[in-house]
Design a protein around this nucleic acid. Structure first.
Lengths: 148, 148
DNA sequence: CCTTGACTTGAAGCGCGGTTGAAGTCGCAG
DNA sequence: CTGCGACTTCAACCGCGCTTCAAGTCAAGG
């Protein structure tokens, strides 16, 4: 069974990440090199899947630290399982926001309002339901910007 | 018609953003204060909707600079309309990624793999379809991490 | 063996998105 | 009128996620 080990340049090329980023991820514990050939890192091909997952999670707004927690997780870690479901719930909300923003952008791109972003339809889609007269709502304990 | 102007503290409270962030957004051209009472900024209530939109866009990964472009856009700006639809397409992809990541997290939270993130189901859901034997694919010109 | 050049390390630097601090201004209650 | 404290500005600073640089190592080709 050949396990054709990859060097860092190859992994960089296939993953689309810079070598410096790969070293950085290793330092932060997100990936591990299989071994060394002299000084040079050698990677198992599986690292590519790991990197795809990491890139995906990063694009979802997860911090390196949080991804690290998932990566080092052992099945017995009930605490982490809770974090995972919590994260999944966060993602649900974010998916909703993104969907609304996407729809708003699509509308804005064909609408004729002066500052385009102030189009009522745009705003409604983003999630604003402007009060009909004035600001009737006393206080709005707002969604406190999720500290990713 | 009363337009009950708001002071920065009120806007901060209702928007959930720090006053410093509001000043920063103003400096970057994302919002404008209606006027001043002495030195103090006064805001029209409409700024709150603007801020909701901004927060939404930020959470979607748009940079301040890009939001600024949308904010200053005039309907005649065809170039910008193109950017908007392009952004909407980006968001579609991102929504897909997030959905997969969410499903993966939900699965991982009930699965018993050693490094949980290496569960085959998890990886498949994130978008990896590991080759059956070895890495048969010669080169993988990869998704070049969208430079948000 | 000798060169070459891709790799190694650690530290410093960068851009972003704000926050913090110092020093000053001023609306408003008393 | 006086004083308090919430506002103002501007510059410096911070954490994150890398990138860049300088200096060194070493595998492999000639």
């Amino acid at each position: 069974m050949d396990a054709p080990l990859l060097d860092i340049a190859e992994v960089a090329r296939r993953s689309g990440l810079a070598p410096s980023a790969l070293r950085y991820y290793e330092k932060r514990g997100l990936i591990t090199a299989d071994g060394r050939n002299g000084l040079r890192r050698t990677y198992r091909p599986g690292v590519l899947e790991r990197l795809t997952m990491i890139t995906c999670a990063r694009s979802a707004g997860l911090s390196i630290a949080e991804i690290h927690r998932f990566v080092v997780a052992r099945p017995s870690d009930a605490d982490l399982r809770a974090r995972m479901t919590a994260r999944a719930d966060d993602l649900d909300e974010q998916i909703g926001r993104l969907t609304r923003l996407r729809d708003s952008l699509r509308h804005a791109s064909v609408c004729a309002h002066e500052p385009i972003v102030d189009c009522p339809d745009f705003r409604r889609a983003v999630g604003n339901v402007p009060r009909e007269h004035g600001t009737a709502d006393a206080d709005t304990p707002p969604a406190p910007a999720p500290p990713v």
